[in-house]
Computed example of a mutant assay.
Amino acid sequence: MTTPPYETPTAAEIDVVSSQLGRAARGVVGIAARCVCGNPTVVATAPRLDDGTPFPTFYYLTHPAATAAMSTLEATQVMPELTALLDEDDDVAAAYQAAHRSYLADRARYGDVPEIDGISAGGMPTRVKCLHALAGHALAAGPGVNPIGDAALARSSWSPDRCVCAQPGAAQGTSTAG
């Protein structure tokens, strides 16, 4: 786990992220989490893209297997269950509020964008809207920071501890792991 400010990504890292996304990566200011093999898993994205578009999703999940796992979870209707947890458990709700504040503080290090002031991602701080964003935050911030992102990762078929980058359909890249 690393915390902002992130080092500027290399051209090779941007190429891997672009391959993972199937399009040119935009606004990447750093690699926020990596696969155990060293490939990017989550990028940190500028709060304002080069074309001037405000972009609230600071932590963007890029790893193909991770994004597929979050899509599968979303299709199983787990989001209403996780949203209900926020209503039922004051500790989880408080931790989710803290995750929202943490997310905003991380993004603020890369600029102030009035159009997205107070807006984080994934439905924070009161609901669960996008498991991709919440898992991305959980992977970047580390366990215990985003309880809903942690829960999504725990329920998914993908694990950040197991590399699947070389499997068919997964992006290939240069490992930076030693």
Rank of each mutant, 00 (worst) to 15 (best):
L86C: 03
E115H: 09
C35V: 12
S19H: 08
F55R: 05
G173Q: 13
D51G: 05
L131I: 10
P125Y: 14
A152N: 07
E88V: 10
P168T: 02
A93L: 10
S102L: 11
R34I: 01
G169W: 05
D87V: 14
V78D: 08
L85Y: 00
L153I: 15
I116A: 11
I148A: 07
T67N: 09
V16Y: 01
A98W: 02
T72I: 13
P9H: 06
A170D: 12
V78K: 09
T67P: 03
S156Y: 09
P160S: 06
S159L: 12
R48M: 10
E13C: 06
V28H: 02
R48H: 07
P64T: 04
L61I: 13
E74Y: 12
C163T: 09
A75V: 08
L21C: 06
D117S: 14
G27H: 11
L86D: 10
S159Q: 07
P47Q: 01
A46H: 04
C35G: 08
A44G: 00
M1I: 13
P56N: 09
T62G: 01
E115P: 15
A32V: 02
G111C: 10
G30V: 00
T3H: 12
T72R: 14
V17E: 05
S120W: 10
G123F: 11
A84Q: 14
Q167W: 01
I148W: 07
D87I: 14
M1F: 14
T176L: 07
S157Y: 05
P147S: 03
R127I: 14
G169D: 03
P168A: 04
T176D: 11
Q20P: 10
P54C: 00
R155G: 14
A84T: 15
K129Y: 02
L153F: 12
S120A: 15
E81N: 14
A95F: 09
I119P: 06
A69W: 06
M70W: 11
L153V: 15
A154E: 13
G38M: 06
L134Q: 08
T174E: 15
S175H: 03
Y59G: 02
P4W: 02
D150G: 10
G178K: 10
Y59A: 02
D15A: 15
C37I: 07
L153D: 08
G27F: 12
P114C: 04
G149A: 14
R34D: 05
A44W: 00
G178C: 08
Q20F: 09
P147V: 02
T3W: 02
T41L: 10
A75T: 08
R26M: 11
R34M: 06
A84S: 14
A12S: 14
V128E: 13
A121F: 06
D51R: 03
G30R: 02
C163K: 13
P147K: 07
M1W: 08
P64C: 08
S156G: 11
L21Q: 07
A68E: 14
G169V: 04
A25C: 01
A46T: 03
G144Q: 13
A68L: 10
A154C: 12
